[in-house]
Amino acid sequence: MAKIMLVEDDAILVEMYQAKFELEGHDVFVANNGEECLQALDTYVPELILLDILMPKINGFHVLKEIKKRPNLRQIPVILLTNLGEAEVDMNKELAQALGVSDYLIKSHHTPDEVVNKVVKVLAAK
């Protein structure tokens, strides 16, 4: 069992990922946007963060920068879980690595099962 923070603004997707992770026996803390995420991180330290990019107010990249600024959070693995394609954000594996991101997953490409497996893999590698 792991403590996972899910940063996602779409309520249905939140429900879906939360259901799957809890089914697999993980503890999910949900933040509905970037602001909520950064606030929660003041008191709650997860083992892994699943981070959406396109969110109102503070977007995922901004959140990522903030996390990397905080020494107590810097080591937490972050998996970008988004629906922005590589072309839209110029995102690729190298850039993700440079940003200190563990993986980059496109929601429509992966089933929740596959996302859980990735998370488990990343946590195991830690």
Partner: peptide, 14 residues
Amino acid sequence: LRTPLSAIKGFLSM
């Protein structure tokens, strides 16, 4: 489009 499609895909897969 991707967002609702992901939801359909995810729930169905489960």
